Amino acid sequence: MVLEIRQADPSERDEVARLLDVAFREDPVSSWVFPDPEHRAAVHGRFLGVFVDVAFAEGRVERTADGSAAALWLRIPAGEPEGEDEVPAKMRAAADPDNERCELVGRLTGAVHPTAEEHEYLLMIAVEPGRQGEGLGTELMRPVLERCDRDGVPAYLEASSERSKRLYERLGFEFTGEAVRLPDGPLMWPMWRKPNG
């Protein structure tokens, strides 16, 4: 498969947020954060829009030319982050201020995020529901992972489903051994990929 990939422009912010919304609307973690389907439909896009804003401000958003898939990447330096991470609180404030789960999911994933080495962090990757299973996500990730291999940089992500965990394992990611346990909810699997070569 030859896939045309380009870096998204901030003017495409709402398009990328809509893609994340439809791709993750039935995801186990999204369903845990927003258990009521009608409420989820109303606020989910705002919740995920915070991820898009962070990626445009601090990293990059790569997407297919036809807009059917997008990946949000951050380059994370080695060492403990300075100060308290404000993103989980922003997610809660933007989407659903009375829903502590909006913030808790970010706090729990942040607590296990590796700090020893600089790495590429796949914050989120989304493929239109009707296009899932075609290999678009793999192809979208491939250039970054190849760059990681060339530069000797590891990569990191959190898988939010068993299906995505299996996909990432095929790309060389390994479960770190410490799952994120959402209270009375699903697991998330932190995964680390050592550079090849």
Rank of each mutant, 00 (worst) to 15 (best):
P97E: 08
V61Q: 00
R75W: 08
V52K: 12
A55M: 04
I76H: 07
R101A: 08
D96P: 14
F47D: 03
A57K: 06
D66Q: 00
E86Q: 12
L72V: 07
K90M: 10
G49N: 06
A65E: 04
E84C: 10
E58H: 14
D85Y: 09
R101T: 09
D66K: 04
R60V: 07
E82Q: 15
A93D: 15
A55E: 06
P97F: 05
A95G: 12
R46N: 11
L48W: 08
R101G: 06
F56Y: 11
R92L: 10
G67L: 02
G79V: 12
I76A: 03
P77H: 03
R101S: 02
P88R: 03
P81W: 05
E58V: 01
G79N: 11
W73A: 03
G67E: 03
V87F: 06
A95F: 10
A78R: 12
D96T: 11
G79Y: 07
E100L: 12
G83D: 12
V50W: 06
D66A: 01
R46C: 08
E58M: 04
L72F: 05
G49Y: 08
A70G: 00
V87L: 14
F47C: 05
V54T: 10
S68Y: 00
D85N: 13
E80G: 03
A65M: 00
P97C: 02
E100S: 13
V87E: 15
R92E: 13
R60W: 06
E62W: 00
D53E: 13
A89G: 11
T64V: 01
I76N: 06
F47G: 06
A94P: 10
E80A: 15
G79E: 10
D96N: 13
G49I: 09
F51H: 15
R92K: 08
L72T: 04
D66R: 03
E82S: 15
R101V: 02
D66L: 01
P88T: 04
P88Q: 07
A93M: 11
A93C: 07
G49E: 12
G79K: 09
T64A: 03
R75S: 10
A95Q: 09
E58I: 02
A93P: 07
T64M: 04
V54I: 06
G79H: 10
W73R: 06
T64H: 01
G83V: 12
A94E: 15
V87G: 11
N99W: 02
S68Q: 05
L72I: 05
D96V: 09
A65I: 02
A78G: 10
P97A: 00
S68I: 00
L48T: 08
T64E: 02
W73C: 05
A70K: 02
R75H: 05
M91S: 12
R92H: 03
A94T: 15
D98N: 05
V54L: 11
F47R: 04
G79Q: 15
E82A: 13
M91F: 04
K90D: 13
A78S: 14
P88C: 05
A55C: 05
E84T: 14
S68G: 05
A93G: 14
R60E: 15
F51D: 11
R63I: 02
A69K: 00
